[in-house]
Write a protein that binds this DNA or RNA. Structure first.
Lengths: 150, 150
DNA sequence: CACTAGACAGGAATGATTCCTACATAGCAT
DNA sequence: ATGCTATGTAGGAATCATTCCTGTCTAGTG
């Protein structure tokens, strides 16, 4: 979702995050997409408007925003870290073909619990569910490949 | 669970994995623990009995065993890869304090489904649930710390 | 027992992320 | 507005898990 500059600044103030051009640009870029970009993706995007932007600043800023609760880190398998400007509780659907990650908002999933027998004394604070499968496009491509193979 | 050499060899044959001392040692080490070791952990463990073992072989072997379906890779957050000799469908409980990972076997969790509206055309093949919290020991330690602070 | 595809060791290379440091600036107090 | 100081930034070096490369070595086959 595209955010106005004043909205970004308000959120930063609300979360006690110092307002800088770089941070606003990074957060804006992340908020505008639903594609869960990597730090490198964000670096390339913001670099277009801020040619002096350093990779370091992107990593540092993502760390700051994460600690402030404005950004979530999403990790799928052992691939590079991805980031999500959607900090509401939600889960993910991952395509095994193209790697795309789609948000899943589902109250049922948010309410999952674990039996106390299984919890083994843990004090459980939250959970994360990750579904794996093939997106419509990759299913299509797969069928095509099978057809070509005969 | 400790496996006899013949049992390891039988599994390798069943999964068309070439039998070598190194592979047997790595798989044995992984099967004996429930602690989800990293490649480095396994390397250090097997190196005791096989001083010539190279790190490379550990990574290569884990890759082979994973593809053969004898080993599962478990990733928590963006930390180093961890491995699990338990290839039955199960989920994990992660301690935010000490990082330990505990297996959770729960039929209810195995049967989670996603509404077709949310699935957005995906063909879903599986899912993974990760619970986060604090283990009994870390809760204990946390209370201690709070008490000391007054 | 010989052959060969595949495995092994060890070192080099890669690449995401973090560390270091000198310079710049946001936000506060004057 | 102006200056002060804690914090942020750029850019390059360093780290470290993992992968790649290459020259032996060996499991499994006939």
């Amino acid at each position: 979702m595209k955010l106005e500059p004043w909205e970004i600044e308000a959120r930063f103030r609300r979360h006690a995050v110092r307002i800088t051009r770089q941070r606003a640009a990074i957060y804006a870029a992340l908020s505008e997409t639903t594609s869960h970009p990597t730090a490198e993706d964000l670096y390339r995007t913001v670099k277009r408007q801020h040619p002096m932007m350093s990779r370091n600043t992107v990593y540092y800023t993502l760390g700051v925003l994460r600690q402030a609760g404005l950004v979530q880190e999403v990790n799928v398998g052992h691939e590079v870290a991805r980031f999500d400007g959607n900090v509401t509780v939600h889960h993910h659907l991952v395509c095994l073909g193209c790697g795309q990650i789609v948000d899943v908002m589902d109250d049922g999933l948010n309410q999952l619990a674990i039996s106390s027998r299984q919890a083994r004394g843990f004090h459980v604070l939250g959970h994360r569910v990750e579904f794996h499968g093939y997106c419509a496009d990759c299913q299509q491509a797969g069928l095509g490949a099978m057809a070509r193979r005969g």
